[in-house]
Amino acid sequence: MTHILELPTYLDQDDAVKDRFARLKQRPIALEVKNLSKTFETTGGTVTALKDINFKTHKREFVCVIGPSGCGKSTLIRILAGLESPTSGEVLLDGKAVHGPGPDRGMVFQGYTLFPWLTVKRNVMFGLLQSGHSREHAEEDARQWIDLVGLTKFVDSYPHQLSGGMKQRVAIARALANQPGILLMDEPFGALDAQTRIKMQTYLMDIWKNIDITILFITHDLDEAIYLADRILVLKAHPGEVQELIEVPVPQPRSPEQLLSPEFLATKKRLEELIHPPQEGDEINGDHMNMVRMVPVDHEVESVF
């Protein structure tokens, strides 16, 4: 016998949550994406990576972007960062159109993109020196940011001496040191083990609470998205389009116990439906394995059940 929990719908919000979303939407707009499309010309023809994307984020909001792999999440965030230019549409940061990369948008990549030849401190100083701060000022600032991510002991270490989680903390400090209005993160914790990942999520939320920063965070991990986000932008693939912008009904501030709360599970159920629609389980059914029994009938463990 299996018990399936009766869950509320993800649309149910308690009063506190409802009130918070009402206030959130009163905040000024941090980022606005208008009619954004992106196509790539490849040898195999034209690939539509993104089609007519529209959304807004408010100041100090935490938005997660989720979607199946290949749906254009990285393309979207790279356009926002200015590393890629859109085929059509525009991106407005604080009402101004962005062209090309710039220090007003911080970016954290999935691969650890620390400069291996610079110490932790010099990595964090990099952006500050680029924007013309004096060496003394940059160094002082860098120390504060390194302190904030708890790596004071490692200021003079080189990246190869750090663990994956520590490297990503340096990358976050490095991006924040420029004091950007928005922090763009492309599956930043994707390469970390489960435990480190949870720790990093908590760190990130602490940083977000204490700093004037809007965060746009890409992930393919449903739990991570619900745990971190105010709202979740769900994309679908081929072409990449906005499927839904979900207001997460789990109250703030978040804590790990909420992972099993009814609102959390309800949201997760909804995301599952959107991302793995039951009718087209193509990958598993499409290329099924030709499994034959390879255990003799008189094997000592005759069946695993």
Binding site: G100, P103, Q130
Partner: peptide
């Protein structure tokens, strides 16, 4: 990606 990271840092 090191070049891209540097670009996003200004």
């Amino acid at each position: 990606s090191l070049l891209e990271a540097a670009q996003t840092l200004g």
